[in-house]
Computed example of a mutant assay.
Amino acid sequence: MPGYRGRFAPTPSGPLHFGSLIAALASFLDARHVGGCWLVRIEDTDPPRCPPGADTQILRQLEAFGLYWDEEVRYQSTRHAAYQNALDRLAAQSLAYPCSCSRKQWREHAVYPGWCRDGIRQPDQPVAWRLRSDLGLRPVTWQDRLFDEQTFDPAQLGDVVLKRKDDLWAYQLAVVIDDADQGISDVVRGHDLLDNTPWQRQLQVALGLPEPRYLHLPLIVADNGQKLSKQNLAPALPTRDDAVRTLLHQALIALDQAPSAELASAPVADQLAAATAAWDVSRLRPEVFKAQPPT
């Protein structure tokens, strides 16, 4: 597929775990199978959550699994001017507005009720910037490559934050701006981000940006049913070669790619070469959750 550009964009709040590997590996194989580019972007917009050295650890883990990127790693912490420019454009269209409300104030509502849409309720308080979800593209419909047609009304999801009260950039705006700037054609990520897509589509339309294709993957859960995450203390990916070989094979099984048993202990490069040639999205099962393989 000429022009295919994919990416893996972790938050450096800790080391990668098996769930991270699934997302990274799927996006890598999806790109490499069609001769496309694969990029790595470090989403470090929240410094308090990003311990020193976590980004380097993540990159070393990716290298241990043979997941090498094609261009210079991008750090979102260097992108303030681009995000501010986009926010200014949204504000000029009345699609973004300052909001002084705290979560505690609207805790009895399922989503933020839009109290500051027509003016800041508490002008003496710090403000966040929110997206006017009721004025943008509605409804939002797209064809997910695994979960088929998806339709959402973003207004029912609420006015998402674009810039926080502490002046840090929120995920929704940053990811849209960087995907467009880096020419990302295909977004491969976990199902937990599927309902973020409606806001991102609204932003893409409002800013005149292209729409990538989306492939949302089943989430990997632990024995207790919790999604694997850094917050849930999921074990870090190993970098020792024998452990990497075994876990890579297990990840390919979790992605329904049916790797041969003979490859279970094969070198990483051999496993990836076979998996790249055989990558088939139609093998994926549209499940929301999958159990983590035994260790």
Rank of each mutant, 00 (worst) to 15 (best):
G183T: 07
S133Q: 09
Q143L: 12
A261F: 10
A86V: 11
W115I: 06
R79H: 14
E72V: 09
Q57H: 11
L272R: 03
P212F: 03
L67N: 08
G183E: 04
R5K: 11
E149S: 13
G119T: 10
A23I: 01
Q122L: 09
D192F: 04
S27D: 07
D144K: 07
A9Q: 03
H33R: 15
A9Y: 04
A273D: 13
R285L: 13
P51W: 11
I22T: 10
Q226V: 03
A275D: 02
Q172P: 03
L193G: 07
W38F: 13
G6M: 07
Y83D: 12
W69A: 09
S102G: 00
T151D: 01
D242W: 10
E211K: 03
D30F: 09
P293T: 09
W69P: 09
L215T: 12
V188Y: 06
T78S: 15
R213Y: 01
H191I: 12
K104L: 08
A278E: 12
L193F: 06
W142G: 02
S100N: 04
L87G: 11
P154V: 01
A251V: 06
E287S: 12
L135K: 15
P113I: 00
C50E: 15
K290F: 02
Y214E: 07
A82D: 15
A155N: 08
L59R: 10
S94P: 00
K290P: 09
D153F: 07
W69R: 05
A174L: 03
T239H: 01
E211A: 14
S229F: 02
Y214D: 08
Q76N: 12
C101L: 02
V127Y: 06
Q105A: 10
G208T: 05
W106F: 14
L207H: 06
S265D: 14
A236Q: 11
A277Q: 14
Q105C: 00
R121Y: 00
T295L: 12
D30L: 11
Q231I: 04
A155K: 11
H33L: 08
R41W: 08
Q125S: 13
R89A: 15
G6E: 08
I184Q: 07
A82C: 09
A269D: 13
D134Y: 01
V268L: 05
R138N: 14
K230S: 08
V73Q: 09
D242I: 14
G53P: 09
P294W: 02
L247N: 05
L284P: 12
Y4M: 13
R213G: 15
Y83W: 06
W115Y: 01
P123K: 08
R138M: 02
V34T: 14
Y171H: 05
V175G: 01
L39W: 01
A261M: 14
R121D: 00
V127T: 15
E287D: 14
L272T: 06
C116G: 02
D124Y: 04
